[in-house]
Design a protein around this nucleic acid. Sequence first.
DNA 1: TTGCACTCTCTACACCGTAGAGATATCATC
DNA 2: GATGATATCTCTACGGTGTAGAGAGTGCAA
Lengths: 257, 257
Amino acid sequence: MASVYSGSGDPRRSIELLWGVQERPRRGPKPRLDVEGIVAKAIAVADAEGLAAVSMRRIAGELGVTAMSLYGYVPGKAELVDVMVDRVYGELTEPETEPPGWRAALEAVARRSWDLYLRHPWLLQVAASRPLLGPNFIAKYDQELRAVAGTGLSPIEMELVVTLVGNYVHGAVRGAIEAAEAEQRTGLTDDAWWERYAPLLEKVFDADRYPTAAVVGPVAGEEMGAGDPARAFEFGLERLLDGVEVLVRRRQDGETA
Amino acid sequence: MASVYSGSGDPRRSIELLWGVQERPRRGPKPRLDVEGIVAKAIAVADAEGLAAVSMRRIAGELGVTAMSLYGYVPGKAELVDVMVDRVYGELTEPETEPPGWRAALEAVARRSWDLYLRHPWLLQVAASRPLLGPNFIAKYDQELRAVAGTGLSPIEMELVVTLVGNYVHGAVRGAIEAAEAEQRTGLTDDAWWERYAPLLEKVFDADRYPTAAVVGPVAGEEMGAGDPARAFEFGLERLLDGVEVLVRRRQDGETA
DNA sequence: TTGCACTCTCTACACCGTAGAGATATCATC
DNA sequence: GATGATATCTCTACGGTGTAGAGAGTGCAA
C-alpha cells in the first residue's frame, strides 16, 4: 500500500480547511460534527494505532455517524490527513524559550522535531505532494529560520540549513519508530528476534564475501543490538551541527556565498 | 493507507527467500513461475507506477496467473516487498572503482544511494520493521563501511557514520521524489501549482505573525520555487561531510572516542 | 499403479475510499 | 405560515485490496 499523499486536491478547499476560514452554511440541518473534531479523532486513532487504522469508516464510527457523512466536512481522506499534519505541527511552536546561540537553537529545533515524530509516528507515512502551507507549518518554518537568523548565512543558506535539519531528523527517526512498531506488531523484542534470526543467517552468511561487515557488524551488534536509533540520532546531529558550524564560521570570517 | 511493512513474518521463510536457498519440491506440477520472475515483475511495476500498483492481482495478471498462485512462492505481500528491496540494493554494489580518500568515498556512497532512490522511488514507501539481512543489503553495508575504514574511527563510529549518511539521503531524497510524483499525478508543474495556490494563501497569510518566514520565504521561492531538492541535497551533503571531517580529524589527532 | 505432495483456479471474506440517490432538517424568502 | 432551496445524513453500490480455503489437476516417490 502506498503512502497517503497529502497536498493534493482543490487548492481553495485545502486552504480553507487548513486555515479554518470556511464560510459556515446557514441552511440545512445543524451539523453534528466539525472539522476540528474529526481531525482530533483521526489524530487520536493514528497516534494509538497508526495511520492504517484511520479509515473513513473507522473515524465516522468513532464519532457516531457513517463514513459518507465525513465528506461534507473534508473533500477526501488526503485532505483530512493534510489537516492532521498541520495540526500536530502546532505542537512544535508552543511558547517556549529559545536557547541562546544558533547552535543550541538549531539543536532544539531538531530535538523538538524528533520528539514530534515519536509522539506521532504516523507522520513518517505521509508523503507530501506539495508543501502544505497551513498556519502551523509556516509557524514551524518561521521558528526554524529564526534559529539561524543572525549567523551571517544568506536567506538561501538559512532555507537550506533548515531543510537539512528537517531531512536528517525525518531520516533518522525512522529507526526509532520502526523498531518500536516492530516490537509492538510482532511481540518480539530485538533480542528475541535476533535469537530466532541469527542461526538462520549464519547458515547463509559468508564472512569472506563481506569482510568489513563481518568485523564491524558483530561489534556494533554487541553494543547496539539491531540498532540504537537514539544514539545514531545524537551522533549524527553532532556531526551535522559541526558541519553547519564550519559554514557559519566561514561566513562570519567574511566569506560570502 | 499505511506503508508496506517489510521484515515481518517467519524468519526462516524470509531468509530462504532473500538468499535464494529454498529447497525445490520434487512432486507436483512443474511450477510456471519462480521467485525471481515475480520479484522482477513487481519491481518493474513499482518503478513504472509506484508501490500502490503492486497488488497481488496486478502482478499475477502480468504473469498470466491468478493472484492466489503467488502465495505458493512468497508467503505474503510483505515478503515480496522484502525481496524487491534487497534485489534493488544489488545495484549499489556493482563493480565500481571507489574514489580515493574517505571523503570522496563517502560522498560516492551518498550519491549512489540518492540515485538508487531516484530509480526506484517506491523504496521511500517501505518501512522496515527489522533489518532485512539479505545478500545485497549486507553487501551494501560492507561497501559503506569500507568507505570509512582506515579513518581512525572506531567500529561503532563507522557504523554510526554509515547510518548517518543513509538517514540523511533517505530524508533528503523525499523532496525530489515527491516533487516529481506530484507533478506526474496532478499534471501541474510547480509554477502552475503556485499560481493557483499563492493568491489563496495571500488572503490568509499575515506577515506580522511570521516575520522571518515572510522575508526568507519569497527569496527562497524566487530562487528555488517550491523547493530545489537536488540543491538541498548537495548543500546538506557538504555540511554533513564537513561535520564528519571534524570528527575524523579529531581521531587522527589521537583523540579517542 | 497408487498415494501423496504440489500447483493453480475459483470463490469468498473483510476491509478500503468514495459516488450518488433519497430521506430529513432547517433556513430564507415570499 | 407556507414553500422552495439548501444542507446533512444514511444507505447502497462500485471497484479496489490481501488472503483463506476448497477442489481440480499434475507429476513424482514408493
